[in-house]
């Protein structure tokens, strides 16, 4: 059990406190970490709280980028009009996390560093191509969120030595949108059986860029490049969407779980959710509903 609880006033202060207290770890909302400590999955000597650092909570647009502080809470992300307009997938993902209490304190960086493959906002961030800015003793580095995973529950960010200060998402500009969907056994306080986020861009009726992230179908948020590639250069129609969805299904490797659903079911659901998310994203991007024969 930690013997000290320290408050950092700035990212640099946070690093200093971590360095001064061997075995310390930083804590944001604590919605994952406190459970880990209680169940003794992690041993720490001190906790460094980063929730009082103003710059870690910003949500803003600058130079064609959306910048989100590492300690932005799910509630603030979900209710930000900027995010709802520019990155609807992230707003929807943040709104899907846990319950109001969990969203009020849980943060984006916590969701990413906890490194669960189906963490909702992490899945959206991967689909959006978000890049994390990580501050450590050696200075700052920038790594795409998709590349921060070492395995289930294992992040390449070492929260005992470094801190994610922000996430940056480049805006693609005209004709872009995104969407998120999840399947869960109840409407709140429920980890997803499956979640999917997609970001697309349409120029002159043709899909020019696409990213699709699916989870939990791999040990990390699964960026399905084949499915995305099948869309690029094509007109977003019900057929192209259906094709991308079935490509995604082939690529997904969900496991059997009595709690979260069978692998077979989740493979079948991959088609449905990918199709729904793409439909929504393309409809938004083109401001025109894509007629889907079966929906």
């Amino acid at each position: 059990m930690p013997e000290k609880y320290l408050f950092a006033t700035s990212p640099a202060d946070c690093l200093a406190l971590l360095a001064a207290n061997p075995g310390a770890r930083l804590i944001a909302g604590g919605t994952d970490l406190v459970i880990d400590l209680k169940e003794k999955r992690r041993q720490v000597t001190a906790l460094v709280d980063i929730t009082r650092i103003p710059e870690l909570k910003i949500i803003t647009e600058a130079n064609g980028k959306i910048i989100l502080g590492g300690a932005a809470t799910h509630t603030r992300v979900a209710t930000s009009s900027l995010i709802r307009e520019k990155l609807p997938a992230l707003a929807a993902a943040a709104a899907a996390v846990g319950s109001p209490q969990v969203r009020n304190v849980g943060t984006l960086a916590g969701n990413v560093v906890n490194a669960q493959p189906a963490a909702d906002t992490a899945v959206a961030l991967v689909a959006l191509g978000a890049v994390a800015t990580i501050l450590g003793a050696e200075g700052e580095r920038q790594v795409p969120v998709a590349d921060l995973y070492a395995g289930v529950g294992r992040s390449l960010v070492d929260a005992g030595r470094e801190i994610i200060t922000r996430f940056t998402v480049d805006l693609w500009g005209e004709g872009e949108s995104s969407a998120f969907a999840r399947l869960s056994p109840r409407r709140a306080l429920s980890l997803p059986m499956l979640n999917v986020a997609a970001r697309v861009q349409v120029r002159e009726g043709i899909c020019t860029r696409a990213r699709i992230c699916i989870a939990p179908v791999a040990p990390r948020p699964f960026l399905c490049e084949e499915a995305a590639a099948s869309l690029v250069g094509r007109e977003p129609t019900a057929e192209t969407i259906a094709r991308a969805a079935s490509v995604a299904k082939e690529a997904a490797r969900p496991r059997d779980s009595l709690l979260r659903g069978s692998g077979a079911y989740r493979k079948d659901m991959t088609v449905v959710l990918v199709a729904r998310v793409l439909n929504e994203a393309f409809s938004r991007a083109t401001s025109r509903k894509i007629e889907n024969d079966v929906e």
Partner: peptide, 22 residues
């Protein structure tokens, strides 16, 4: 667990009691 009989969801996160949203 189908082999050992160990409980898999004897907690209120994994046992899906409906919430007010449901």
């Amino acid at each position: 667990d189908e082999k050992t009989g160990r409980p898999l969801n004897n907690n209120l996160l994994d046992y899906k009691l409906p919430t007010i949203m449901d």
